[in-house]
Nucleic acid binder design. Sequence first.
DNA 1: GTCTATATAATGATAGAC
DNA 2: GTCTATCATTATATAGAC
Lengths: 184, 184
Amino acid sequence: MAGRRSDTRERIQQVALELFAEHGYEKTSLREIAERLEVTKAALYYHFKTKEDIVHSLVEKLVGAFDELLHWGSAQPRTHETTEEVLRRFSSLVNDEYGSEMQFIQQNVPTLKKFGVMMPLGQKVRELFQLVGAEGDDPATELKARLALVALVLGINPMFGGPEAAPPPEVALKVALELVAPRP
Amino acid sequence: MAGRRSDTRERIQQVALELFAEHGYEKTSLREIAERLEVTKAALYYHFKTKEDIVHSLVEKLVGAFDELLHWGSAQPRTHETTEEVLRRFSSLVNDEYGSEMQFIQQNVPTLKKFGVMMPLGQKVRELFQLVGAEGDDPATELKARLALVALVLGINPMFGGPEAAPPPEVALKVALELVAPRP
DNA sequence: GTCTATATAATGATAGAC
DNA sequence: GTCTATCATTATATAGAC
């Protein structure tokens, strides 16, 4: 019984994200998404009220994932091993399951700002580097904590990272740990 | 004699960049640019063949600035002071004169990729962190050299930096220098 | 849940007068 | 060097049949 499937919503999210990440939100038309799914535009509107709504649904999932990591981390003892595990889990999130979405977000900021999803996301990230940000809150320590997370996600940055120059995950993790270590 | 000025080309570049950086390339219409300049769309087409052409003209200037820094740096003795001065000049470039453009670039990647300007830019940046990248080329050292430059430009990243959390330039510079130091 | 058909609204770009 | 007027295209979104 093709034509009456029930996973269309998730398939829309998946295909839309692919195209958003590759060509950008504005240059990805609903027609294009529909064609790749072999449905019509009207079908998309059954599952999502607007094009913008697809983005909101995607971001919600990511915020949920960050929240989960934050909750887990806060419940652990504040040891070196915990920090390492937080960084490791963050690395997995932003490179595996949410790699495309992180790329989409970083490369379509004006759009996402207009949709009002940039600040909530920024807030979660801020909580994350508080979690790994050593004890002191002097500016240099804080900056290094930020850079630790950046190191783990540098592969998606085409200007300062770039896929071809993406450091192996172990290397990135090692450098990240150095950056959050109490004394270098 | 208003209506026959000769600096319109530069004014278009300036206003276009402002709008591109704030609302994104796709969502900035030529009508909007023309209105802010109090000219008509047709006038824009006298100075630039297409909308895309405006972007190319902007990127060319930045590549030129990077090239200038690269030439200067290569001609200096490879000392700690040189590295510091390269980082300082890079910081000035990306935060002062080309701050808006760096923001525009990082936040409109799909568009700029399609225009073919992303790879040449990435190449210049790669040369830049070779210039500051210590002697070794083991992956960790290389990653740290990248992060040094990233630290200096973190303010324009709304997810991992953000204007409100932009580190003072001296702090960023200090951390950047740590990152390219031979032994931490 | 998916389709056809259409309404509505912008946009990038061009022609030609002044 | 700037204007008026217009074209062609494409996009998001909706109405209503099946």
